[in-house]
Design a protein around this nucleic acid. Sequence first.
DNA 1: CTCTGCCGCGAAACCTAC
DNA 2: GTAGGTTTCGCGGCAGAG
Length: 274
Amino acid sequence: MPKVFLVKRRSPGVSVRSWDELPDEERADTYIPVGLGRLLHDPPEDCRSDGGSSTGGGSSSAGEPGGAESSSSPRGPERETPEPGDGEGPDGHLAAKQRPVARSKIKFTTGTCSDAAVHTCDLCGKAFRLQRMLNRHLKCHSQVKRHLCSFCGKGFNDTFDLKRHVRTHTGIRPYKCDVCHKAFTQRCSLESHLKKIHGVQQQYAYKQRRDKLYVCEDCGYTGPTQEDLYLHVNGAHPGSAFLKKTSKKLAALLQNKLTSSLQGNANLSEEEEK
DNA sequence: CTCTGCCGCGAAACCTAC
DNA sequence: GTAGGTTTCGCGGCAGAG
């Protein structure tokens, strides 16, 4: 069940399947958004009325601050984009009165204001070194969001932002704490947790890229390599969009490896049978 | 070369505990 | 009320694909 359904009921009598029943580490790896297909066509009102519910914020976990049980908290992206039907949960929970004012995410940054920055945004004055940076920046001013969340309808300028957002609906938490096994949707959340709770300092320089983690957005499986993820998806989710998006070159390469691997196993089996 | 996806950073908004 | 931890997302920088 997508976390989006995990709305804290005001009345304790109502029992709702809670992800609290699963530890984070298990949830992250085992959760399969079975309702996803249905959601695509029939998004629950809760979803629209309370993105927060998805947030998992809570979801995080049982007994933890911001756990799923508290997910009704009016938090989350949907709050920022009130839509028809907002706040109209089936039982009236999270009524409009509980919805806070749209959360402002407006960030006043200075852009790249170096001498080398020669491409300036006419709308906000930010300057960029490269034209393509300015081109992309201009999308920020556009009211048209190209990437829409199929769960709640919220729009994003960036596919990755959408992908990241969708995790709040699917409950997929790829980043796990080695110490307490709590799971997080984003790496920075995990690193913040490690630093504050366990006093673990990251060994990375400022802005240094971490080891990439390959995440299956269908089930939360994580692998250390793209090949690893490809093999997983190929076996577990043959119809996954991931396979369609994988570049032909890489797909062919991985498919060859997969085939040869299977052949090797087959030969091995034959030899064992003899 | 351009487009697009991915990344990390930073900050607002939120929660729980005290 | 306040402090501390967590969740979420806007956005600039970077890198790979085409």
